[in-house]
Amino acid sequence: MSGSAVFWITQLLNALQYSMLLFLLSIGLTVIFGLLHFVNLAHGALYAMGAYIGISLALRTGSYWVALVLAPVAVTLIGVVLYLLLIRRLRHAGPLSQVLVTFGLIFVFLDVIRILWGDIALGMDPPAALRGMTSIFGVRYPTYRLFIIGMGILIMVVLLVTLARSQIGAMIRAGVENDQMAACLGINVERLFFAVFCLGCALAGLAGVVAVPVLSATPGMGTDILIPALIVVVIGGLGSLHGAILGSFIVGFMATIGAVLLPGINSVLIFAALAAILVFRPQGLIPARG
């Protein structure tokens, strides 16, 4: 295979891998907004908690796989506490209060991480089975990155099928479309909201622990990733699962291909795309409500 084909396949895999990380992170953000109308800026902080808790668990137990399972559970527990203490009360408080309280949470989590884990960034090895490289489409690519792609696709498929085919999926769709009507139809909307919120938190935690072996963990990682994640959900359509998928691909591919072809102005391009969407099509490319 020619050198340039290898190069482009590798770059496409890079773009796909980054898209999947963005997807795992933004899906919770968008679903929580779609159903609860809640803007959770602290979502990035939950992602960071997932990363750090994952590192500690992997160190304690010696197993990445234990961390992969338990870190999202731990993050969900944190989410439950936040839900009961803060988020439930702010459900109907309007976007300003929500943005401010979750902005405050970003500050709190930033220092909690510094106090518990220190200022120096931490790294984590991928599990032994996923180290090294694997040949795919005629190129050698890091196995762990392929695992991220696989994990992203798996979760994407599970969510799509659940949403389209299952009863709970139908309830969620009804809730996004019109929550009052859904409540009239006998759906326990509050319980549904709580379940979806927990799922969103678990996915943020999962994204954190999955990202660490590649990106490493810093106290500011939650704030760093927040802006790209918000761009993904806004471009796709706030509250829309399909939109988050599309948005992740757009941002992931723009970031990667931009780094190859247009280094320098590539981050401006992404913001410009965001601004254009917000002005001309604020409901996003695939709006949540039909």
Binding site: A93, L100, G104, F107, V108
Partner: peptide, 17 residues
């Protein structure tokens, strides 16, 4: 100091904003 400022902000909003 971030944690203190964050907590004050959250309390201020919860107190009615």
């Amino acid at each position: 100091w971030h944690v203190v400022v964050g907590a004050v902000l959250i309390l201020a909003v919860l107190a009615g904003g």
